[in-house]
Simulated scan of single mutants.
Amino acid sequence: MSKKIVTFGEIMLRLATPGYERFCQATHLNSTFGGGEANVAVSLANYGMDAQFVTRLPKNDIAEWCLSELHKYGVKTDNVVRGGDRVGIYFLETGAVARASKVVYDRAHSSIAEVTPGMINWEEVLKGADWFHWTGITPALSQGAADACLEAIKVANKLGVPVSCDLNYRKNLWKYGKTASEVMPALVEGCDVILGNEEDAEKVFGIKPEGFDVEHTGGEVNAAEFESVCTQMMAKFPRAKKVIITLRGSINANHNTWRGCLYSEGSLKVSKDYDITHIVDRVGGGDSFMGGLIYGLLTYTNDDQKALEFAVAASCLKHTIYGDFNLVTVPEVENLMKGDGSGRVSR
């Protein structure tokens, strides 16, 4: 029987310029859907898990289109609540070489931003769940979304459901009068597994590796330097059993190095390092890592190294796929873990 994983957050309509066109050049935009927790749910559904995505959506045709996209990939949406007026949107301009990608949000007053505690019956949603996942994007949307997320975490803790979070700091989202530093600690306190990148821990909690400049990686990232980040996070949040850091070395917009490290029980595990030379789409890269990590931790029990390697390999493959969703299978990820990155035609 497959494991039941519940994720909670916002899914948006994604409108992207074709290829590497700038906004001012585009005569049309490509439409897909995406959002941190939905991306994780799609990954897990592809791996054969019972993935259930919870959000709030309006009753209109755009919301129905969104739900049909999730259903296409096997994600269950039975616990989506309906109400509000709009589905959030984000616009994407994909960068190239020295020009960075750009994201413009149009998500104010979306249905999920106007969620309040009590709208979602978390006791029912989390009954029989094996995992609950949220990201720092959700509490950034509004006080109501932060409160609903905290409500879910508390119910998960009460029911003994493991909780994971991706810190996912987005400075452009915290607009309702509270900072991430004020809101996030109460939510992260209830988490068993914490994921972040080299900037999240510093931007949200002021925790940083000693003697390392997170702004200028130059493509070289030494995982061992982040052990201090993990130990500081665990000291601050004693419930956490595992802290994971994703390490992206940005050589340019099309060429990154990618690896991860996992700290648990006083030991730091470091993954293989991938050299991703021709990125197709890096949006959703961290979510694909999280989806792979959850699958790995639930499948390769007591083998943190293998779970970490699965997460990094899955995310490496995501960089080759257009859109937010990581549309890969377990055998494809495991082949890359074994070293088959040749890209030869499978016949």
Score class of each variant (00 low, 15 high):
Val6Leu: 10
Leu13Gln: 13
Ala16Thr: 14
Tyr20Gln: 13
Tyr20Ser: 14
Thr27Gln: 12
Thr32Gln: 12
Ala41Pro: 06
Phe53Trp: 07
Asn60Val: 05
Ala63Cys: 11
Leu67Cys: 15
Ser68Cys: 09
Tyr73His: 12
Gly83Cys: 07
Ile89Arg: 00
Tyr90Val: 13
Leu92Lys: 05
Lys102Ser: 12
Thr116Val: 13
Gly118His: 08
Ile120Ser: 00
Leu126Thr: 06
Ala129Gln: 04
Ala129Gly: 04
Thr138Pro: 02
Ala148Ser: 15
Leu150Thr: 04
Asn157Trp: 05
Asn157Asp: 12
Ser164Lys: 03
Tyr169Gln: 04
Met184Phe: 11
Pro185Tyr: 12
Leu187Tyr: 06
Val188Met: 03
Gly196Arg: 07
His216Asn: 13
His216Met: 06
Ala223Gly: 02
Glu225Phe: 09
Glu227Ile: 07
Val229Cys: 07
Met233Thr: 14
Met233Gly: 11
Met234Ser: 04
Lys236Trp: 00
Lys242Ala: 14
Ile244Trp: 02
Ile245Leu: 14
Gly249Val: 01
Ser250Met: 11
Trp258Leu: 01
Arg259Gly: 11
Arg259Phe: 02
Cys261Arg: 05
Ser271Val: 06
Ile276Gln: 03
Ile279Trp: 05
Val280Met: 04
Met290Ala: 15
Ile294Met: 12
Leu297Gly: 02
Thr301Tyr: 11
Asn302Ile: 09
Ser315Asp: 02
Ser315Phe: 03
Cys316Arg: 11
Gly323Lys: 09
Phe325Lys: 03
Val328Asn: 02
Pro331Asn: 04
Glu334Gln: 10
Met337Asp: 00
Gly339Lys: 03
